[in-house]
Design a protein around this nucleic acid. Structure first.
Lengths: 272, 272
DNA sequence: GAGTGGTCTAGACCACTGT
DNA sequence: CAGTGGTCTAGACCACTCC
């Protein structure tokens, strides 16, 4: 605010945006607090409302504030953070051969978040699709092969926005041996996908994670409750069984402002 | 375009943005081609220029177009994609004990991109800093401990935007045993950081990657040449030596529209 | 009903790019 | 030079929230 009067070649709206950004970073505008209204800001900065709105748009793009119709514009509070590690996969595998009672106790999301089963809601949809070109390529099957397609949403009860959005594909002929796997009625399945595959005689040998980041699609932004302008992480998880077959492809859409993924790489020792 | 005349409750600018998005996806507006100018668009859609600009802002946020002052707004061409796998780390370690001549042949970035050394430019800056709270915590040293701080930029010569931006920290006392490690003049160092550490008697045992995604900071957006509104992946790489010490922390800022990270997890077999 | 953010208009001047 | 996108103004009406 202090140096706002000095000459500056940058556009005014950017100066305002950076000024407000600095106020947020310094804690003068604490998380959860509303910004001054647009009319107030246009008076204090002596700018048109359009320019002030332009500045606020910047802050939204930086993921610093969120606007609520008819209420105000608020400094974003850091949301429930989720740390997802690779040990998760081995942990899931270890649980596969436990009793149903033990498997029922906790799921993988609880492990990541530290929340209990009660704090989470779960939604699943099942259907069948024909393999697209990219899916056929990863599965190593002809285009058009029948796949079981599933869609999951896991939410924290405290914040009703989903923690993640998952699309999963499985070769239909592989899983149809167990009819219980073909209906969403049995979700959440104790022990998860690795146990589901175990019931048709499949053991997962390794998992490949492919990671990308991009701005959210409009529909994803709505479902995951992220500002357009906050990133999503796309985690494409490819499960390969002990016979080398690709048995599941899952695409996890994770809000970038709440997920942290951790991967551990063990290197071979020098033998000397 | 066809259904634009029908009644629609969504804002006009969004309808325009989605219409143009669909034209791009259908290939009617091919990559590299300019959009109609803002004045032309405002005439064809019978909207004010402000609203048309609003629509174009959306397309920028979706990462679909880029505006160039005084020239036009162009459909973004897909950029050189980089696939970075974890094998990279073992590959780096295997090279450490080769001869300098062999190490000089290729660097890690060439491995990722498939480009030759000639197609890449490299820039490094060295300095010293005192450990911040978070850095001190990861290194397990007192706040204020002297660290060697380095900043790297690797660019493809074809597209002059950097492929990545790297900040690296090393405990100063650990590397000062070899004075050659304290100056940027010796970069690019054949064999990279793992070999640099080898010269002071350090063997890397494991590497932890922490991944996040977020919108780019204004300065990062300029350096990496990404539209504000295209995501960056933040890869925090923590190297741990055979004695369990954290010997390097590196933060890689990767443009989300060109990087794909791959992690492989091997699971233990069931012994039956 | 008063106040908020969301959309939209019709103008203006500017810096930059091409010729 | 004409044409492009970037900034900015001073208004307007709307949907929404809260009292």
């Amino acid at each position: 605010m202090a140096s706002m009067t000095e000459r500056d070649w940058r556009p005014r709206y950017l100066q305002v945006a950076e000024d407000l950004r600095d106020q947020i970073n310094r804690g003068e505008l604490p998380a959860g607090e509303p910004l001054p209204s647009e009319t107030v800001l246009s008076e204090t900065y002596k700018l048109s409302r359009t320019s002030v709105r332009n500045a606020i748009k910047q802050l939204k793009d930086w993921g610093l504030v969120r606007a609520e119709q008819g209420r105000g514009t608020y400094v974003r509070a850091p949301r429930q953070r989720v740390r997802r590690t690779t040990e998760r996969y081995q942990w899931e595998k270890d649980r596969v051969r436990l009793s149903e009672e033990e498997r029922r106790k906790t799921g993988a999301t609880e492990k990541d978040t530290g929340l209990t089963m009660d704090g989470l809601t779960f939604h699943a949809e099942y259907g069948t699709v024909e393999a697209s070109e990219t899916l056929a390529a990863t599965f190593g099957v002809p285009v058009g092969t029948r796949l079981l397609h599933r869609r999951y949403q896991t939410s924290s009860r405290q914040e009703n926005a989903p923690l993640s959005l998952v699309y999963s594909w499985l070769p239909y002929d592989l899983v149809s041996a167990n009819p219980a796997l073909l209906s969403a009625d049995n979700e959440p399945w104790p022990g998860g996908t690795q146990h589901q595959l175990y019931t048709v005689g499949i053991e997962i040998d390794r998992i490949v994670d492919e990671l990308r980041a991009r701005p959210p699609q409009p529909d994803e932004a709505a479902i995951l409750d992220v500002e357009p302008g906050v990133s999503v992480i796309v985690l494409r998880k490819i499960s390969i069984d002990t016979q080398g077959r690709v048995v599941e492809v899952a695409e996890n859409i994770l809000p970038g402002d709440r997920y942290e993924l951790v991967y551990n790489t063990q290197l071979e020792r020098w033998s000397e």
